[in-house]
């Protein structure tokens, strides 16, 4: 038979696998190991065994870490509500129009193509105290200038572009899900006198539940990995580390403060939170879909 000779597998699989082992699996395991030892400097060797001390410090003794953790955790429900929520609304609307579907698809997707660095820079131009766009609008309205990245506002202002940027991504996924919903079901529901909102709630949304679960999982795991935008808009968690996220705090600890073992521990926290939440969301949402599938 054609594929009985297994030797080509060496060439087909080994290069990719070697790359993934060297640059993903091995460093990942090393990272766990590193987080348990005291390491001085970026290329220092692991010295004293610390055990879980870095993790204890993270959860009990480091106020900035707590801010970063809280910021990242708070971002998760916000991404679900604002990114996936807005995406669903926009997709339902676009699905209902005849003209211009293609146009809205293209335009809504714009921000994803742009680097987060560029978007971050753009938003710092908006937020700037002296001559930033928002303060210019306030001046035109005869209002006082506002310090947009003040202690009270900084978190909100930093997550606005984060939330805004990826709406188009989920929009496109939801829209494709909607295209797969057969028209007949909606039509028969209309004939039975179901209103638009009823149809959406009882027919459309349950039918694209798989897609919604995918979006929710992607949004939540994406929230844990946020880095570029906060790193550009509010450098080093300015002001006072209030806008640190797990990713930016990890970068600061490992590469700026050269606190390598602690940085490694934070990155493990990032992975664990990502996996646990993704699993949790999957478990929480999937059984209900089976039930409803049975009903229909």
């Amino acid at each position: 038979m054609l594929y009985r000779d297994k030797r080509p597998l060496l060439v087909l699989l080994v290069p990719s696998f070697a790359l993934m082992v060297i640059f993903l699996y091995y460093p990942f395991v090393m990272n766990i190991y590193n987080s348990l030892f005291d390491i001085k400097g970026m290329i220092g060797r692991p010295e004293a065994f610390l055990g879980l001390q870095n993790y204890v410090t993270f959860f009990t003794r480091d106020p900035v870490a707590m801010t970063a953790l809280k910021n990242s955790l708070m971002l998760m429900p916000l991404t679900v509500v604002f990114q996936v929520g807005t995406a669903i609304v926009l997709a339902l609307l676009v699905d209902n129009i005849k003209r211009g579907q293609q146009f809205f698809r293209v335009v809504f997707f714009f921000p994803i193509v742009i680097s987060a660095t560029a978007i971050g820079l753009m938003f710092s131009l908006f937020y700037n105290y002296d001559g930033g766009m928002l303060n210019q609008i306030l001046r035109m309205l005869g209002q006082e200038k506002v310090l947009w990245l003040s202690k009270q506002r900084a978190y909100t202002m930093v997550i606005i572009p984060v939330l805004w940027q990826y709406v188009g991504f989920y929009f496109v996924i939801v829209l494709t899900g909607l295209a797969a919903v057969p028209d007949e079901i909606n039509e028969s529901a209309s004939i039975d006198g179901a209103s638009g909102l009823q149809k959406v709630w009882y027919i459309t949304l349950p039918m694209i539940k798989d897609v919604l679960i995918t979006c929710t999982t992607l949004a939540i795991t994406g929230a844990v990995k946020v880095f570029d935008l906060p790193a550009v808009i509010a450098k080093f968690g300015a002001p006072n580390g209030l806008t640190h996220f797990l990713g930016t705090y990890m970068h600061q600890q490992a590469f700026v403060a050269q606190n390598v073992d602690y940085g490694s521990a934070i990155s493990i926290v990032i992975v664990v939170i990502g996996v646990v939440v993704a699993q949790g969301v999957g478990k929480a949402l999937k059984p209900r879909r089976d039930l409803e599938g049975g009903q229909i």
């Binding site: 640059f23 460093p27 990942f28 590193n34 970068h251």
Partner: peptide, 28 residues
């Protein structure tokens, strides 16, 4: 196209690699 021992494990490893953010590997 190929059947080979350990194919399942290879598949799982590929899926697992999706879960590693750059943060968790960058220091090593």
């Amino acid at each position: 196209r190929y059947m080979f021992p350990g194919k399942k494990i290879v598949h799982i490893l590929i899926v697992a690699a999706l879960m590693f953010p750059a943060f968790s590997t960058i220091v090593p």
